[in-house]
Each structure stands twice: as structure tokens, then as C-alpha cells.
């Protein structure tokens, strides 16, 4: 048997510490801040513009997110968003444009497996967990809010 036992595994893991490259954490955080901030500023611009057209605030927010989803989807289609994502990490993934990227990228990727089992089945491969856990946590929070607090 050549699978190491726990003690050997721990020894190897400790040995690896000396070789572990430093992640460019500070650089990544700064870049995420600026790119994420920029995307939100664009969103704010869209929101402000929509409101000048006389649309009430609540609807304006909804429309803004829809427009930002389109923007993220379109940039993914053009093959640009993956580059923004590899440059900015969470700065590109956390805004709703990144959510759109996570829906469009598998949809495009698996088109070659057909429109039902490819596009249809794989579209939420990455975004699915986000929707599942958003629904679960929101339900739990709402129930607590209604009946406990």
C-alpha cells in the first residue's frame, strides 16, 4: 500500500508549508474593490437614468438589475467577461453581472451537447447553488422574523 497514513500525510503537509506560494491577497482585494465598485457605479448610472424617465424607485431597481444582467450576459457572449473575471476575481463575480456570467458561460459551453440536455440542463450548473441557498436562507430568515422576533 502506498497511500500515506494520517501521520505521514500530516508530515508531508507540514513539509509543503515551505513551498506554498503567497497569494497576491492584497493586490486581489484592491483590484476587486475597484472593479466591483466600478460595476456598481455603472449600475447606479443606469438607475439614475431610469429614474429621470419617471419610473418609480422600486421598479427602477428591478429594471436596473435586469439591464445589468443583460450587460453581463452580452459581455460573456463576446468572450470578454471571463477575462474581467480572471483579472478581478470577486470584483467581477459578486455583482449581478457575474451572476449572469455564471448562467451564460455554461449555457454557451454546453450548447454542443444540444439545446435540451446541453443548454437547458447545464445553464444553472454554477448559478444553481446560489439560487438554492438564497431561497433556503431567505425562507429561514423570513420565518424567524415573522414568528420568533
Amino acid at each position: 500500500m502506498t497511500k500515506a497514513n494520517i501521520r505521514e500525510q500530516e508530515a508531508y503537509s507540514a513539509f509543503l508549508e515551505d513551498f506554498r506560494p503567497k497569494r497576491a491577497t492584497l493586490r486581489n482585494i484592491v483590484v476587486a474593490f475597484f472593479v466591483g465598485g466600478l460595476i456598481c457605479t455603472v449600475g447606479q448610472g443606469v438607475l439614475t437614468y431610469i429614474m429621470t424617465r419617471g419610473i418609480p424607485l422600486k421598479q427602477a431597481y428591478v429594471l436596473t438589475s435586469s439591464i445589468m444582467v443583460f450587460a453581463g450576459a452580452f459581455l460573456t457572449g463576446l468572450g470578454v467577461y471571463d477575462k474581467i473575471g480572471s483579472f478581478a476575481g470577486m470584483g467581477a463575480a459578486l455583482p449581478i453581472t457575474g451572476f449572469a456570467n455564471s448562467v451564460v458561460s455554461p449555457a454557451m459551453e454546453f450548447k454542443r451537447e444540444g439545446f435540451v440536455l446541453g443548454v437547458g440542463a447545464k445553464m444553472f450548473q454554477v448559478a444553481g447553488p446560489v439560487i438554492v441557498y438564497a431561497s433556503l436562507s431567505a425562507t429561514v430568515v423570513s420565518i424567524l422574523k415573522l414568528y420568533v422576533f
Partner: peptide, 17 residues
């Protein structure tokens, strides 16, 4: 990439390792 990791157009950062 599409088999082992993410769809090719998914934007994510690669760790240095």
C-alpha cells in the same frame, strides 16, 4: 477546463499553484 473545472467563459481567478 469544461470537464475538470468550469465552463471556459466563466470568469474566475486561478490560484498561483
Amino acid at each position: 477546463e469544461r470537464q475538470f473545472r468550469y465552463p471556459t467563459e466563466f470568469g474566475h481567478q486561478r490560484p498561483p499553484t
